[in-house]
């Protein structure tokens, strides 16, 4: 009885490895199909194919290097499929409007030709984001800790904050751009207000819910106010603050690009809006990709930072 079940199990498992090995070939086959498609003459043969091929090569190289990673294999399968649809739909299908639907080669070529402008845009956006973010984080944590530890402030300021904070900053972005003297100040202000409330409320709530035993222990150690702030309250709030950061960055970026689309003369949002005005949708799509890449890189950075800074869980 026992042996029969084992044998049966073995047979079932035997059929799986075959499918599993086959799975590994799927993204490579798709890669080959893509290459074949790209080098088949079509509607868009004039655009240099180098950048697009480079992107595909990076994907394929990652697949070959990390052969044991199933998620990577699955992700690349999906990406290659999307690229095939995109490449086929724009260059091989009949009567495609290449202005509205640029080919992948065209979009990736933007990164090669406009890299100078792109770097300037990133620098300008990161500057605004950096200033707004640092200000919001510093003030949010400082005021949050003070508010959270004083019952009277907590009972009066937190309800107010909860009324103000849900107003999406995008709503008052046009007004801020109109009222504040320079675009720079206006966008720093809206970035600031898109992050500040979240950090402020989170910190105040963390502090006010601090374990009484921990607080008693700190009190009986006769900590100075500075030690209490930097060695007890701040590290206590840090994990919670780190958890809200990815969302904060996403919010800030959304507001920043929105602001840039209204009044900026450089930056990622400006890049997209500027070329949209000229109906240069190739660059618009490239800009959208770029923003996706930048936000992902920022979030990756935050996750790494959290891993480094919060080591006590």
């Amino acid at each position: 009885m026992m042996t029969a079940t084992l044998q049966e199990k073995k047979r079932i498992e035997f059929s799986w490895p075959a499918i599993r090995t086959m799975q590994w070939f799927v993204p490579h086959v798709l890669f080959a199909v893509l290459l074949a498609l790209i080098f088949t003459p079509g509607a868009d043969d004039a655009t240099p194919k180098g950048p697009f091929l480079a992107v595909l090569a990076i994907g394929e190289a990652a697949l070959l290097l990390r052969r044991d990673s199933r998620p990577l294999s699955d992700v690349m399968t999906i990406l290659f499929l999307l690229f095939i649809v995109w490449e086929f739909g724009t260059t091989k299908a009949d009567d495609v409007n290449l202005i509205l639907y640029p080919s992948p080669a065209k979009v990736f070529d933007v990164f090669a030709t406009d890299w100078q402008k792109i770097l300037d845009g990133i620098r300008s956006s990161m500057y605004l984001l950096g200033v707004g973010f640092t200000a919001a984080l510093t003030l949010g944590v400082l005021l949050g800790i003070v508010t959270g530890s004083v019952a009277r402030l907590r009972d009066s300021l937190l309800p107010l904050a909860k009324v103000i904070s849900p107003i999406p900053p995008i709503i008052y972005t046009p007004y801020a751009v109109a009222v504040l003297p320079t675009f720079e100040i206006a966008s720093i202000f809206v970035i600031f207000s898109s992050i500040f409330w979240q950090i402020y409320i989170q910190t105040a709530l963390s502090v006010s819910s601090i374990d009484q035993k921990l607080l008693d222990s700190a009190k009986t150690m006769n900590l100075s106010a500075a030690a209490m702030f930097f060695h007890v309250l701040w590290p206590y709030c840090l994990p919670n603050i780190m958890k809200t950061l990815p969302l904060s960055v996403a919010n800030a970026f959304m507001v920043l690009t929105a602001a840039e689309m209204i009044g900026a003369t450089s930056g990622l949002g400006y890049f997209v809006r500027y070329y949209a005005d000229f109906a240069d949708y190739t660059r618009v799509i490239a800009g959208i990709f770029l923003i996706g890449i930048v936000v992902s890189a920022l979030n990756y950075g935050i996750a790494e930072l959290e891993r480094k800074v919060v080591r006590w869980h």
């Binding site: 035993k213 921990l214 008693d216 222990s217 700190a218 009986t220 060695h231 590290p235 006590w312």
Partner: peptide, 14 residues
């Protein structure tokens, strides 16, 4: 004066 409590008096981040 020094106090030892029943539990949870260490700072978790140290």
């Amino acid at each position: 004066r020094g106090v030892v409590f029943q539990h949870y008096s260490l700072f978790p981040w140290m």
